[in-house]
Design a protein around this nucleic acid. Sequence first.
RNA 1: GGCCCCGUAGUUCAGCUGAAUAGAACGUCGGAUUCCGGUUCCGAAAGUCGUGGGUUUGAAUCCCGCCGGGGUCACCA
Length: 596
Amino acid sequence: MITNKIQSAVSEALKNLYGIDIQPEEIVLQKTKKEFEGDFTVVVFPFVKQARKSPENVANEIGADVCGKLSDLSGFNVIKGFLNFTVSDSYWISFAGGIAGNSRYGLKEVNPSDAPVVIEYSSPNTNKPLHLGHIRNNLLGWSVSQLLAANGRNVKKVNLVNDRGIHICKSMLAWLRYGNGETPESTGMKGDHLVGKYYVEFDKHYKAEIKALMEKGVEEEQAKKEAPLMVEAQQMLKRWEEGDKEIRDLWQKMNRWVYDGFDETYKKMGVSFDKIYYESNTYLLGKELVQKGLDLGVLFRKEDGSVWCDLTDAGLDQKLLLRKDGTSVYMTQDLGTALLRHNDFDADQLIYVVGNEQDYHFQVLKIILGRLGFDWADKVYHLSYGMVELPNGKMKSREGTVVDADDLIEEMEKTAEEMCRDRGKNDDMSPEELQELYHILALGALKYFILKVDPTKTMLFNPAESIDFNGNTGPFIQYTYARIRSIVRKAVSEKGLDLNAKCNSVKLDDKERDVIKMLHDMPSVVEQAAEAYSPAMVANFTFELAKAFNSFYQDTPILREPDANRMVFLVQLCDIVSVAIKNMMHILGIDVPERM
RNA sequence: GGCCCCGUAGUUCAGCUGAAUAGAACGUCGGAUUCCGGUUCCGAAAGUCGUGGGUUUGAAUCCCGCCGGGGUCACCA
């Protein structure tokens, strides 16, 4: 890499000229700003004190020394304390030639025998359908998996289905009470939606009971506990934990409905898992750990029988691990599943894609794992992402302002269809091909819209803008890709061009150089994005690349280029850019169409 | 109240391992077509980077105070 060479040469120059010792990798090399001449910039201010010369002198001396040694540099210029190096066109051209035809450009190979990084995402509750918040989770989980794999990590994707607990009992109870035996078949509803309907139903009746009790003079806190529905739901959970057959059968039936619904949604979103854990199979593990913790003296039991971890010495609170009736809570289960997962995979890292409202939970989880004596506790990494808000505020399931995942995808597909109809360029495509295309565009828009934002930040989801096809959007990039493929196809079929031909020296114009420089940059963008767990960095880079290409394309008539040798070069460049776009979009979980 | 996160053009977002006049996109206004796919390209207007201090040759970026917004501290998950 030219960047490493420059760093080394600058490091040497500093040593030779001024006796300053700085490791090559510590030399900060930045891309030269557009408005100045050059490709890479070194800021020399940090060295002037030790060099005891003016910034201009230092920059000029280093520049001359480095350029004398590196034939890939064609020159340098100095503006104040900024030393700008210009890379020779021959370097760029040979670089482009070197990556031409490489369909995996920008992606590293994975060694399957490496200790895996296990990434958990999705982790739905089985009491209601997926909504917009889950979409961000799923898209992030999938994309970060792709991103880490693109950076050479051996990734295993896992899902932990929260298939048991009081929330499930609420849906079950409500279905028994008010369901009249409804099934997905009898209603034509997707199973997860049907079960979700009864979760809402429970809440409605539960609220009414609380209100009635309060009118009789019961305090609110007390009313919430005493309401008959809540008492019954709790009894149901107890019976479930005791293995009561009637309850278990009902539970299995309703969960089946939900899984079938989820599978459909996952498929549409294009996400999948290497392994699925069910909390019903793992929650007991946590109880064993609690016993271990009691034996170790890390946990303690209160008079009422509940078990706690005292974290006040770590500046936190006391944390409940077992209720007084002996049933386990979220934290108990998470301890158990963490251990199970560690044993299953002997992982290098355990990543949890979970919203930032659970920052505290994971902080506590790591501490307790550590206190239980697990030295791998620090391999747990909480990939904490921000909430999704709507233009009119937060999503609240009780207020009916949630955006349902299935509805959203369907609407996006409809919009994609309208957009394409308006342009009318796909008349010869079959209905199936068109349907597939609409799906690709709809998901491209949705995924890009969500993934282009830094995962850690709260984001605003504007439905109207999310389906936009212009500007910094998925479809804009998809369109750029389709257009490039069209050129390459024509070059081969109509001009008989050989994509693998060697092209001799050509002259580069600014736009071409800009594109090549971006391609040159791509591997390090993937690396940085992987380190930051940020698909957003990949997304924004890809948009910049598409823009740079479009700008180049706009004033370069490729297929009318008279010089055959130069045409080969231009078409190869197009081809590389299309590969780059495809690979980057693949990291985002977005497909790119050959035509649209 | 304790702890954590966030305040950048009208709007949505980059930039936040400190560096040159703070960048995009949408929207607004004005241009480009002998077109290989105009779902394109070029340009303009638009910002006291919440606020007040501090560190530094240099701060949107690091530190402290304040203001504003959010999260969390459940025998919910």
